[in-house]
Structure formats: structure tokens, C-alpha cells
Computed example of a mutant assay.
Amino acid sequence: MKKVIMPIAAVLIIIQFFRPQKNISAQVQANAIERHYTVPQHVSTLLKTACYDCHSNNTSYPWYNNMQPIAWWLSSHVNEGKEELNFDEFNLYTVEKKKKKLHEIAKTVKEGEMPLSSYTLVHTNAKLSKPQQDEISEWASSLEKEIR
């Protein structure tokens, strides 16, 4: 049994020294959606609470992000989320991509697909009520029609 546990423990200790880069930005980005489009304050608050950890350049990390391999998994998840949609880089998108992303926001939030249940399991404040889902969805649909 020692021959199995000791190598596993050694690997778990060693990997603690290899940390992914954190996704932290202290300021509103130049291409952030709110710098170029109207985002009502209440919608902005909802987006920051339910979406921005994975879909912006600023993640609020939980305490367990200090443990490997969890930090690698979270980093991968955040990077995937930012590749799919990044509110801090929104104005870099083409008009067509902006419209597509806004349509996807409206649809996935209204259908309860976002935020992910694996995220809201730990971040209970990110759970969106039906009225909150509707508010985000209506805002995204309205902005999609507005963009030319």
C-alpha cells in the first residue's frame, strides 16, 4: 500500500508548484460591452454575478482554486468560456458575431442553460430567477436588433 500512496502523495505535492495564470484585470477593458453599448445597471449586475467569472477578463476565484489539479480545471473552464464569449472583448467582434452572441445569450439564458448548473451549485448567488432570465434575454434581444 505504501508503494502506491507515497508516489501519489509526492505527485500531488509537486503539482502544487505549477500554477496557471489567473484571469484578473483590475479595470474595465477598452472593448468591454458596457463601453460601447447601453447595459442597464440591473442587467450589468446580473451579468457580473452570473456570467463574468467565465466570460470576461476578470474572474473572482474561490478558495479551492489554490489546489492543483482543481486550478488547472478552473483555468481551462474559464479559457473555454472566454473563447465562446468575452464581454470584455465584445467590441472586437464583427457585427455579425455580435448579433450571433447576443442571440445566443438571449436563448441560453432564457432556456436556463446558462449559467451552468455546475457553476451555480457552488455559486448560489449566480442562479437566475425566471424574471432575471427574462430581463437578460430581453436586453440581449433588444441590443441584437439595435446593432448595425
Rank of each mutant, 00 (worst) to 15 (best):
M1A: 14
K2P: 04
K3V: 03
K3F: 12
V4K: 02
V4G: 01
P7C: 02
P7V: 04
I8L: 08
I8R: 07
I8S: 09
A9S: 01
A9G: 02
A10G: 11
I13G: 10
I13P: 02
I14L: 14
I15V: 15
Q16Y: 13
R19G: 09
P20M: 07
Q21N: 07
Q21G: 04
K22D: 04
I24H: 01
I24K: 00
S25P: 04
N31S: 11
N31R: 09
A32R: 01
E34W: 04
H36Y: 08
Y37K: 00
T38V: 10
V39H: 03
V39L: 10
Q41N: 06
V43L: 12
V43N: 07
V43E: 03
V43Y: 05
S44F: 10
L46D: 02
L47W: 04
K48G: 13
K48V: 14
T49S: 06
A50M: 03
D53K: 11
D53G: 05
C54P: 05
C54E: 02
C54K: 01
N57D: 09
N58K: 07
Y61H: 05
Y61W: 08
P62E: 08
W63M: 09
W63G: 03
Y64R: 07
A71Q: 02
L74H: 07
H77N: 08
E80F: 14
E80V: 08
E83K: 15
E83G: 09
E83L: 11
L85D: 02
L85F: 08
N86G: 04
D88Q: 02
E89H: 08
L92D: 11
L92N: 15
L92K: 15
Y93M: 14
K98Q: 15
K100P: 06
K100G: 10
K101S: 12
K101D: 12
E104K: 05
E104I: 04
I105L: 14
T108S: 14
V109R: 00
V109T: 00
K110T: 09
E113H: 13
L116S: 12
S118Q: 12
Y119M: 01
Y119H: 02
T120P: 12
V122D: 11
H123C: 03
T124D: 11
T124A: 07
A126L: 01
A126E: 04
K127Y: 14
L128S: 06
S129C: 00
Q133H: 05
Q133L: 09
D134W: 12
E135Q: 07
S137F: 08
S137A: 12
E138G: 11
W139T: 06
W139R: 06
A140H: 08
S142K: 15
L143N: 00
L143I: 06
E144N: 11
K145A: 13
K145D: 09
I147M: 08
R148Y: 14
